[in-house]
Simulated assay, not measured.
Amino acid sequence: TNRLGDTLKQYYPQALEWFDHRDTVLFCDFVTRWPTQMHARKARKSVLEAFFKAHNLRSATLIATRIEAIKASKPLTQDVAVITSHRLLALVLVEQIRITLQAIDRFDREIAALAPTLPDYKLFSNLPGAGQALAPRLLAAFGEQRERYATAGELQMYSGIAPVLERSGQKSWVHWRLRCPKFVRQTFVEWAAQTVNKSFWAGAFYQQQRGKGSSHQAALRALAFKWIRILFRCWKDRTPYDESRYLDALKKRSSPLLALLDPEKAELKLAKA
């Protein structure tokens, strides 16, 4: 998609302005059908409307705005050599993206069919923000061998979520772990981001970290670090995560996080515990 974007910027940058995402069938089909600004501008309004509706775009306002932008567009260049060479490359790249999207869809279908058959799937499928995409990834990150990790700290270090503390003489510094399975680390960070607005305490913890001066990514890694400790115990005990029970545990420990929670929502959750 980066190569396609760079190619389109050379002769047809308007296509990048008309669409928010390049890794979609909609974008691929549009560039294939109208590979230059001239082709798009000459297309009839009714044809463009039918195209967008056929790709499940139902917003009349968005369709009208997009068509208006297409009709008002002006060519970046009229150099035939520039347009022809980059048009050919763009079409090749679009076909590569299209095949990749088909492959991803095939993997998604296989994962969706296989994941629910695994014994630990329910431990992860009902987690806040997990969904069909992240639940199987979390399941794969933990695995099925309970003896593999003796403590949550081992998983935190293996996944790369736990930072590294180095010392030399009287100096010490902390940096993130470079040698780790990057996709596993990415899984925990991406899932932590999904829980910020779906878990009461996770949202409060994230805001607490930002209040301390942490960047967005640093706050998410800190949240992922905390989540791993919680999920590790659920995984070890084969007990599904329960938000209300965890809030009750925070209350018993007089956790400062409770002060950051919405009192009414927190009490409602605690009442269910």
Rank of each mutant, 00 (worst) to 15 (best):
G5Y: 15
G5M: 14
Y11N: 00
Q14L: 04
W18P: 02
W18K: 01
F19E: 08
F19G: 05
R22G: 07
T24K: 00
H39G: 00
H39W: 02
R41I: 05
E49V: 06
H55Y: 07
R58I: 08
I63G: 10
R66C: 01
I70F: 09
S73Y: 14
K74W: 07
P75V: 07
L76K: 04
S85K: 13
L88P: 07
V94K: 11
R98K: 01
T100I: 04
L101V: 12
A103N: 11
A103Y: 11
E110K: 13
A113F: 12
A115W: 03
L118R: 09
P119C: 05
L123A: 03
L127I: 07
G143Q: 00
Q145G: 01
A150Y: 11
E154L: 10
E154G: 07
V164H: 02
K171E: 10
H175Q: 12
F183D: 14
R185C: 14
T187L: 14
E190R: 13
A193M: 12
T195W: 02
V196K: 09
A204V: 03
H216E: 03
R221V: 09
A224F: 02
R238V: 06
R238G: 05
E243L: 01
L247V: 01
A249F: 01
A259Q: 02
A259I: 11
D262W: 13
A271R: 12
A273M: 07
